[in-house]
Nucleic acid binder design. Structure first.
Lengths: 107, 107
DNA sequence: TCCATGATTCAATATCCGTTGAAATCTAAT
DNA sequence: ATTAGATTTCAACGGATATTGAATCATGGA
């Protein structure tokens, strides 16, 4: 994952509705969810959810397929995993995730 | 880490200069770096780096201390670690990060 | 074909961000 | 007290982003 992809992913996740979309799709798993169902769950309008879904898709965090009239969106677990790896590699130098295991960094 | 903190952290990391600031400070370690030095390394202006440092500090990803005339900024490894944990917990259900892609502990 | 459904696109608007340069602040040395 | 150094703050501007409602597109059933 290069910088550009990571920046796009971070931007995508920095918006409340989109973060909740990703969470919802992660829970939904490989089956995914129709756009309208996501809008319903998150309590937003069709056009608004469509806007945010497009942003997430463009950032590579979710993918879409058509099933009859519905457009089904699902989480791209590989992309999310790559983002975690990016954070660890580029920003933590591979230090362990758990707070207790980190050397105390006072500043 | 709650949603608000995570959203702020993602927003902070979604900008190229700020991502590079974090990387630079992670490499610098606990000693940190003066604002002017960071600006120098990243090739940007004092006022610009000040703006971005404030954003990162507000997001909780870096912290500041004064040393004489210089303001020394350093990475908050705990916060970065918490963000990784958040991503894994909330967005991956703790699952699928390719272990082989994780960086090994570097000297 | 005609209609209903599911979703996207468009246009308008308001707000938020990032950049720039000048002015102000804060600290230390003379 | 004056000056220089390090950094922040301010105001202005342009560009990006989020929201809304109406219009449009695509699909499938009667």
């Amino acid at each position: 994952m290069d910088d550009k992809q990571a920046l796009a992913a971070f931007a995508a996740l920095s918006q409340e509705t989109r973060l909740n979309v990703v969470r919802t799709l992660v829970v939904a798993g490989a089956d995914g969810l129709a756009a309208g169902r996501i809008a319903e769950i998150l309590g937003t309008s069709p056009s608004n959810i469509s806007f945010h879904l497009k942003e997430l898709e463009h950032a590579g965090l979710i993918s879409m397929r058509r099933d009859s009239r519905s457009l089904i969106y699902s989480a791209r677990f590989d992309a999310i995993g790559n983002l975690v790896s990016f954070l660890l590699k580029e920003c933590c130098r591979g230090l362990p995730v758990d707070q207790e295991q980190l050397p105390s960094q006072q500043a």
